[in-house]
Design a protein around this nucleic acid. Sequence first.
DNA 1: AAGTGGTCTAGACCACTAC
DNA 2: TAGTGGTCTAGACCACTTT
Lengths: 237, 237
Amino acid sequence: MEKLDAQPLYTRVKRALAERILSGIWAPGRLLPNEFQLAEEFGVSQGTVRKALDALAAEHLVERHQGRGTFVARHTSDTVHFRFFQLYDAGGRIQPDSRDVRVAVADPSGRERAALALAPEGRVIRITRTRTHEDHPIIDEQISLSEALFSGLLERETIPNTLYDLYQTDFGITVARVEENLRAAPASEATARRLDCPVGTPVLAIERVAFDYSGQPVEWRVSQCLTDSVFYHSTLK
Amino acid sequence: MEKLDAQPLYTRVKRALAERILSGIWAPGRLLPNEFQLAEEFGVSQGTVRKALDALAAEHLVERHQGRGTFVARHTSDTVHFRFFQLYDAGGRIQPDSRDVRVAVADPSGRERAALALAPEGRVIRITRTRTHEDHPIIDEQISLSEALFSGLLERETIPNTLYDLYQTDFGITVARVEENLRAAPASEATARRLDCPVGTPVLAIERVAFDYSGQPVEWRVSQCLTDSVFYHSTLK
DNA sequence: AAGTGGTCTAGACCACTAC
DNA sequence: TAGTGGTCTAGACCACTTT
């Protein structure tokens, strides 16, 4: 390892490993060399490699399994749902279905341009769908993606319920963090039609921006939710 | 250290230290013995003590400062506000003021009894107040506390804006975790009166239960928020 | 039985804070 | 200058998984 970086050794090892993962040299699911092999490669002790790997595991970049090894983290619909989906009913996290899915390309609105940090000539892919829980419509959802990052999405015949594993598998984009802003708002005419409720009904408006590991915004999503039978849950520690 | 507990050494050290802090033997703000002194006391190595202290720091039970030492964590209005308050405006986290504060003792409702896990004969202290931001009422707040835990609160002349540092300082109760459930709802007649808005206006209803380190619920709070100029922010990683 | 990550030790040196 | 936590090493042994 080169020195004089004024940062701890394990930080430099961590960054070197993160680079291999984020660049795709090590693909999701891949087994990493063991701690001693990495220690030898970087010219540090095994304890230093361990600290770097533990930090990467805390950021969900790798998964460690005693007796098996350390693997590049792979997004599955379950793990993503558990990390990033916060709507519950009395029985726990809900798994809504989708209907009336539409996909289209459009020139971005000002908010889309800002949220996705689009280039001046960039266009967006918009996915709109109504999500149902126990056959009742509860979420009116609009998702905006940069066309530059997700070209090819339009040609798909079907859009799965959970998108983030698709982003990783088909587009090489791994969501690392989401920021959500919540407000109460009256249902618009369009939302009321899709949710089969009166115009003006209070809905929970969730604005979400999803970021990849480099901090670049990759998805903007607005969900209008009826909260008669579900609620948004948050734990603060 | 006694053995045969089938748990790692550092876990046992951590629990022993946590017990001293939670029981009050080591009060908030107190300087702990250094790592080598603790290692000698427990008959383990310094590295094991370090791992225990790092885990306690991650749970906000202690604070570590290079060159100064390790201290029992002390709640201040700032740290608590930063950890547990999620309402923002365009400029960042807001710090609402309070008005029309009322404190009273009452027999608990069924929901209060359930949320606070009250004993059959237990009563509650209710604090109601209207919270303002830039002189506009934005939150209609009701807080319920077990009278058994907070006796003496009624005699106070004033109730501060941030309560959790008061809980720790005056009642020995440290909030470790809060769980919040959010819904959109129409403003009730009472809420509309206090927030100076029409009945039925969509408000963000935040139901919060706060827990201490042992997992016991210590506070139940319902906030009805107008979200014209503020929003609830959540980051998921 | 072989290989992996998890725990634990003993000791060295560095970076920061206080006196 | 003394004392603290932070980093790093080298090595031992344990617990778990796979073959």
